[in-house]
Design a protein around this nucleic acid. Structure first.
Lengths: 113, 113
DNA sequence: CTGATACTTAAGTAAATGCTTAAGTGTAAT
DNA sequence: ATTACACTTAAGCATTTACTTAAGTATCAG
């Protein structure tokens, strides 16, 4: 019954956590290793790994491991997707406001022609 | 330690649920009563009320009650806020890609001058 | 006044989240 | 070979979420 946009579900839910947004914020400045990401965060490294897993499964972040260090970076596609979803709804709402305005303009004015 | 953006937390978390996105989707087309919103949804009315409460506390939706019917509508401000947050991070990432490209262009080319 | 409508509140439950500490597994440096 | 480093997995736990049903509380219509 509900449209099935599991990818948006995961992306928005991932962004709904301050730790994960902090990670995205850091990655927006450029790729980083897991330890780099964990260092400023007030939690254990395994906890950061879990957040990274969420971000990666949501498609917002990707990572590759070379040697013993895993480097993470943003995947902008899902960011765009989420951004677009919000933008389209906002625009739909604004068009409705405009239509309502036009309707009121068309019906109310008594001093017409 | 983490930047405190409780409003974004709530907005993104609200959008991270398919039922709530369906409600926003419906409201983008125009205001609706609680029952209107609940009718197509595969759950009880109290459950829908809880989702509405989340949407309202996140600032994405507002509502007024007149008589016995509560009419809900989108508040576009928080939609814009969330959209902007994503957009800024995406752009930051893209600027970084450009800088990297420029750096590579500036250092690698052997056939210069 | 009586019943139907449109929400609202309360109480309870199963599952998902966000951590923790402890114990691994490979890779790199000495 | 030995040690340190950078993750990774596992097990466990407290809290929050997403519902449910049942029992209200105001309107409004007849």
């Amino acid at each position: 019954m509900l449209k099935c946009n599991a990818d948006l579900d995961m992306a928005f839910q991932a962004l709904g956590d301050p730790t994960r947004r902090a990670i995205v914020e850091r990655l927006a400045a450029g790729p980083a290793s897991v330890s780099d990401l964990a260092r400023p965060l007030p939690m254990s490294l395994p906890a950061v790994m879990l957040h990274l897993k969420v971000l990666e499964e949501s498609g917002l972040v990707r990572s590759e491991k070379v040697g013993r260090v895993r480097t993470c970076h943003i995947d902008p596609k899902m960011l765009s997707h989420a951004e677009r979803w919000i933008g389209e709804r906002r625009e739909m709402w604004e068009r409705n406001l405009d239509r309502l305005g036009a309707y009121l303009d068309a019906t109310k004015p008594e001093k017409e022609e």
